[in-house]
């Protein structure tokens, strides 16, 4: 899901960078002092997750885990994802430095939305917690695929065909991410409930 260097046009890159910068500023402002360690833990998980590759036909897909990062961090997921993507670009040559902003938007926006959509379900019951995690994982990849298609569309590619190809390629990842996220949040709620954000009253 990392967009490589040289694929996108300059206006798309600039817009992505501006949005990522604004989001990172907002995220840093909103980070709760007591939850900074949780941000680091989840950023590390995101950083490592992309090394996990799933071989599906000719496609090359890998775990992303933006769902769990967003679900548990909310807006603070943006600086977490930016840091992890920057390190992936530098250490593993995934994506690129010029595409960093767009990649942050593609992966972080759905993650933040997942927080607001599915966090209320967490902790209600073990089944609902798993479902919330599953949906957060699945939704994040689905929405990221659409944003990726949009970014490519703005660079004069066929949006419908491109998006369809991307979504099709990522269907197995959506399911895998949903299951992984579901199990992760269920496990965390039992073993480390402090990482689950408290609902604001």
């Amino acid at each position: 899901m990392h967009i490589s260097e040289g694929v996108l046009s300059a206006p798309v890159l600039a817009t992505g960078a501006a949005l990522a910068l604004a989001g990172t500023g907002l995220g840093l402002k909103k980070i709760d002092y007591d939850r900074i360690v949780h941000v680091a833990i989840l950023a590390s998980a995101f950083f490592v997750a992309s090394l996990i590759h799933v071989n599906i036909g000719p496609a090359s897909v890998h775990l992303i885990l933006n769902g769990i990062v967003g679900l548990l961090l909310g807006v603070a997921a943006i600086p977490a994802i930016l840091t992890a993507l920057l390190l992936q670009a530098v250490f593993f040559q995934y994506g690129g430095l010029t595409t960093l902003g767009v990649n942050v938007v593609v992966m972080a926006v759905p993650a933040v939305l997942a927080h607001y959509l599915f966090l209320p379900l967490l902790g209600k019951s073990p089944t609902l917690t798993f479902i919330a995690g599953f949906l957060a994982g699945l939704f994040s990849i689905l929405f990221s695929s659409i944003l990726l298609g949009l970014a490519l569309w703005f660079t004069n590619q066929n949006f419908f065909e491109t998006s369809l190809a991307i979504i099709t390629a990522y269907i197995p990842v959506m399911i895998i991410e949903g299951i992984v996220t579901g199990f992760c949040v269920t496990f965390l709620l039992k073993a480390y409930p402090e990482i689950i954000p408290k609902k604001k009253k």
Binding site: M1, H2, S4, G6, A59, A165, A169
Partner: peptide
């Protein structure tokens, strides 16, 4: 290489 992947 599809889905935004490219190299040269």
């Amino acid at each position: 290489a599809g889905t935004g992947h490219q190299a040269q």
